[in-house]
Amino acid sequence: MQASIANSIVAALQQVLGVQSAALHEPRFGGNEWRYLKECLDSTFVSSVGKFVDRLEADLADYTGSAYAVAVVNGTSALHIALMLAGVRQGDEVLLPSLTFVATANAASYCGAVPHFVDSEIATLGIDANRLRQYLSDKTEMTSGLCINRETGRVIRALVPMHCFGHPGDIDGLLAVARDFNIVMVEDAAESLGSWYGHRHTGTFGKLGTLSFNGNKTITTGGGGAILTQDLELAKLAKHMTTTAKQSHVWEYSHDMVGYNYRMPNINAALGCAQLEQLPELINAKRRLYQAYEEAFAEVAGVELFREPAGSQSNYWLQTLLLSEDNKDQRDAILSATNTLGLMTRPAWTLMHRLPAYEGCPRMASLSVAENLADRIINIPSGSALGMGLD
Rank of each mutant, 00 (worst) to 15 (best):
Q134T: 11
E141H: 14
Y290D: 06
T229I: 08
T244G: 09
Q313S: 12
R35K: 10
T152C: 01
A274R: 03
L282F: 10
A107K: 02
V300C: 09
W349N: 07
R263K: 09
A3T: 11
V72E: 03
N7L: 12
G206Q: 09
N149F: 07
T320P: 03
L237M: 13
S48I: 09
Q14L: 13
L96K: 05
S314L: 07
V177S: 03
G387L: 07
L79T: 03
T244H: 11
P347C: 00
L146A: 13
L37K: 10
L228V: 09
A365D: 15
I380M: 05
A69C: 08
S4E: 14
M352H: 04
V186H: 02
V300D: 04
V46K: 02
A370F: 08
A285Q: 03
L193P: 06
S195T: 01
G166W: 01
T64P: 05
S98K: 04
G50H: 07
A107V: 04
I5K: 02
N315D: 01
S248I: 13
L279K: 08
L174D: 06
A58L: 13
G224F: 04
L279E: 05
A357T: 15
W196E: 07
I380H: 04
L79H: 02
M264W: 09
E295K: 08
C40A: 10
D231K: 03
N130R: 08
A23S: 11
H353Q: 12
T340M: 10
P265A: 01
I9G: 02
C111K: 00
T242S: 12
Q90F: 10
C40I: 02
V46P: 05
T152L: 03
L323Q: 06
R307Y: 08
I183Q: 06
E294I: 06
A310N: 07
A296Q: 00
Q15C: 05
I219A: 04
R346M: 07
